[in-house]
């Protein structure tokens, strides 16, 4: 199987802190891959490195075999790598419609278009509708984003990333902080992501991880601790010791 995303010996130091410690990692094409690890293990840092928000101290990042280590964040997106954020990064004053429309316009090259009124192209509209339906946002399309319930905001967070039509999607704790009642809706949309998108999921909710992922990597203190199938990782006593043990207690 082809490799969608790969890192080789990736290192990130913040001063004295080794937040990413020589991580060599592969995400297969079409994978449902979970990355787990205790708080502060360096998961978000890893995503920030992959997407170019921060620069690695050492190592390489390959997207579909091509080196993207020095590429600017927006160019990585244009090459098919999108992400969500652990803490919502939305546009508070814009509506979900505008937010999704923005991402769709950008993808189709419309962002340089300064004379056409937004929304005057048929295929863009269809795309927006498709995404709004997929992420169950049709009823709140014209609300101000800052007024949306938290669960809807989390959905929008994924919807924007998805609107970039990525081939690799990185989800940073999509269900974090979502109240139980709104959780189901969110998980359903994550489960229904199309299979041709390779997904790397960071999550603390073990039920979600086990039901969603076919492979799991465990990150501890910035380094890859182990990797395997759901079966292997969930029965690995060392993983229980460093991670599951803690999270069960939480």
């Amino acid at each position: 199987m082809a490799i969608a995303l790969e890192t080789k010996g990736l290192v990130k130091r913040f001063g004295g802190l080794q937040a990413t410690d020589n991580v060599s990692f592969q995400l297969q094409q079409g994978a449902r891959h979970a990355l787990i690890g205790p708080n502060g293990a360096g998961k978000t840092t890893f995503i920030n490195l992959l997407t170019g928000v921060i620069k690695p101290t050492a190592g390489q990042i390959l997207l579909e075999g091509q080196d993207i280590t020095g590429l600017r964040p927006e160019l990585r997106v244009q090459r098919g790598l999108a992400r969500t954020f652990q803490i919502n990064q939305l546009f508070p004053a814009m509506t979900p419609l505008e937010t999704i429309g923005l991402a769709v316009s950008e993808r189709t090259g419309g962002g340089r278009d300064w004379w056409r009124v937004t929304g005057s192209k048929r295929d863009i509209i269809d795309d927006i509708v498709d995404i709004a339906q997929r992420f169950r946002l049709t009823d709140v399309l014209d609300e101000r984003t800052s007024n949306l319930p938290y669960g809807k905001q989390r959905l929008l967070e994924i919807a924007v990333a998805f609107a970039c039509r990525p081939r690799v999607l990185l989800l940073d704790e999509p269900a974090a902080g979502v109240p139980e009642a709104e959780r189901h809706e969110l998980l359903a949309t994550v489960a229904a992501l199309p299979r041709d998108v390779s997904v790397l999921l960071i999550e603390h909710d073990m039920d979600l991880v086990f039901s969603f992922a076919d492979r799991i990597s465990v990150l501890v203190n910035g380094a890859l601790f182990t990797e395997g199938t759901v079966e292997e990782v969930s029965t690995d006593p060392r993983v229980r010791a460093v991670y599951l043990g803690e999270s069960v207690d939480e």
């Binding site: 927006e74 546009f91 316009s105 937004t118």
Partner: peptide, 24 residues
């Protein structure tokens, strides 16, 4: 009101996310 203008507003509101949707 063009897509370009929309992208400007998004940059003003949240440049981090604007980059993350592929806006230069």
């Amino acid at each position: 009101v063009s897509p370009y203008g929309l992208s400007l507003r998004s940059i003003r509101d949240n440049p981090l996310r604007a980059r993350a949707v592929g806006i230069p």
